[in-house]
Design a protein around this nucleic acid. Structure first.
Lengths: 147, 147
DNA sequence: CGAGTATACTATCATATTGATAGTTAGTCA
DNA sequence: TGACTAACTATCAATATGATAGTATACTCG
C-alpha cells in the first residue's frame, strides 16, 4: 500500500496500518502475547515462510513493537520480546478476536484469562468517561480535515 | 496469505484477518463508518486504484460487511452500506485508532463523538465482567490446542 | 573426533498481487 | 451535440509472496 498520497499520514488508524496492515504481523503479535519469542516457534506456529518471517520480525522490531534480544552468547541466539508498544496492542487483538467470534463462526478459540485469578476475560470496548458500550449508541466519526 | 495450513481456521483472530488483514479493507471500513457509501467517495478519500477498490468492495460485500444497494435506477448507481457485521467492527477501529494515537505520534486525528450528546468518546477495552481495563493486569493467552 | 541435531537464518525463483494509467458504459444536463 | 458524472474494466510493469533448499554456528552424544 502506498502511504504517501493518502490520508495515511494524518489519521491514527492509517498510521497504525502502515505497520500492522498485514495479517502476518498481527498473527506474530498474537503469538508473542501467547508467550512465543523465538524464530522457530513463530515459524512452526504460523506455518510462515522463513523469508517472510525474517522480514516481518525485522519490521516489527524496527517499528518498536518487538525487541530483539540475545538470550545466549554461545551459540549466539536471538529472541523477540514485546515492547511496551507491542503490549499495548493487546486491546486491538482482543477486539479483532471478539469480532471474529461473533461474525466468523465458532471453531476452537483463542481465549484470554486473567493470569492471577484465572477467570476468563470477555473484552468490550467502552467509553472511558461514561462507561457506555461502543456500538450501542450512534456515533459520529470525524475525519481530520472536517470541522 | 495462505489460510489453509495455519491455525487460521481455528482462531477467531486469524479468521478475522482472512477478511480484514489488508490495510485497504480496514480503511474502507473506517470511511464507511465516517459516512461514505459511494465508489468515488472511497476512491478519492483513499487515493486507491479503482481496480483494487472494486476488488475490496466486492470482497467486503461477499463477506457480509457491506451491502451493495442501488440508490438510483436511471442512471443505475450503486452504493455500499455497512451491515450489522460491518457496524460491529467499530470497536476494532476504535482500538486501532487508540493504539496509533498512543504509539505513532499525533498528527491530525480521526475523532469519535456521541452522535446525540456530542461528547467526545475515549475508547478503552475492559473486561465485561469485572470492568478491569485490559493491559493493566497480566493476561494469559491460551491458544486453541492448549489445555 | 565425528555424526547428528538445533536454531536462526539467507538464496533463489516461479507465481500472485498491486498500483498506475487509460479506457468504457450509461446516463444527465445545458 | 458536447461536456460531464459515476462506476467501473483492461492492461501491464513492478513488487511482494511463498515454497524449497541451503548456510552458519555451536552443542551433544558415543
Amino acid at each position: 500500500m502506498n502511504s504517501k498520497k493518502t490520508s495515511a499520514n494524518t489519521c491514527p488508524i492509517a498510521r497504525s496500518l502502515a505497520v500492522l496492515g498485514d495479517s502476518w504481523s498481527i498473527l506474530i503479535l498474537r503469538d508473542a502475547h501467547a508467550g512465543l519469542t523465538r524464530f522457530d516457534q513463530f515459524r512452526k506456529s504460523l506455518g510462515i515462510a522463513p523469508t517472510i518471517l525474517t522480514r516481518r520480525l525485522a519490521m516489527l522490531t524496527e517499528e518498536g513493537l518487538l525487541e530483539k534480544r540475545r538470550y545466549s552468547e554461545h551459540p549466539p541466539r536471538e529472541e523477540y520480546v514485546l515492547t511496551e508498544a507491542g503490549r499495548d496492542f493487546l486491546p486491538v487483538l482482543f477486539m479483532i478476536g471478539t469480532w471474529g467470534r461473533q461474525h466468523r463462526g465458532d471453531g476452537k478459540l483463542v481465549r484470554f484469562f486473567d493470569a492471577e485469578t484465572g477467570t476468563e476475560i470477555r473484552p468490550v470496548t467502552v467509553d472511558e468517561v461514561t462507561g457506555a458500550k461502543i456500538g450501542t449508541r450512534p456515533i459520529r466519526v470525524v475525519m481530520p480535515n472536517e470541522s
